[in-house]
């Protein structure tokens, strides 16, 4: 399943400094939730300091998740079932000026 991942607010620093990733999630019988995606990203994309991205099987507080330009809090957060061609953005609020 092909989806797009975007990083903003400095999160890209943890992912090899790349802000846009076009990824192809492996086919499987069970659907993919964002919770599953987070673990997949940690294993396959994350380059450093996982504790700055993942906490208690969700994103670290202070990282906003936006699915197709909608706050994931409206979509069930980590339980949201990913659809083909979704664009999922991770934006950190933590980096100051």
């Amino acid at each position: 399943m092909k989806i797009t991942i975007q990083f903003g607010g400095g999160v890209h620093l943890l992912f090899g400094n790349i802000k846009l990733h076009e990824i192809d999630l492996p086919d499987r019988e069970k659907h993919w939730t964002i919770g599953d995606l987070l673990l997949w990203m940690t294993d396959n994309l994350l380059q450093e300091r996982p504790e700055l991205f993942l906490q208690d099987k969700s994103v670290r507080p202070g990282i906003l998740v936006i699915v197709n330009d909608t706050d994931w809090e409206l979509l069930g957060c980590a339980d949201y079932v990913i659809q083909p061609k979704d664009t999922i953005g991770f934006i950190s609020t933590l980096h100051g000026g």
């Binding site: 903003g8 607010g9 400095g10 620093l13 202070g62 906003l64 936006i66 330009d69 706050d71 953005g89 934006i91 950190s92 609020t93 933590l94 980096h95 100051g96 000026g97």
Partner: peptide
């Protein structure tokens, strides 16, 4: 709220800088 500031910048497509301070 910080969340709303970031969301506002995101939806208004404002360009801002967001690398953490190298010493922070």
């Amino acid at each position: 709220y910080e969340k709303e500031i970031v969301m506002y910048a995101y939806f208004r497509k404002l360009v801002y800088f967001s690398t953490e301070c190298v010493f922070a």
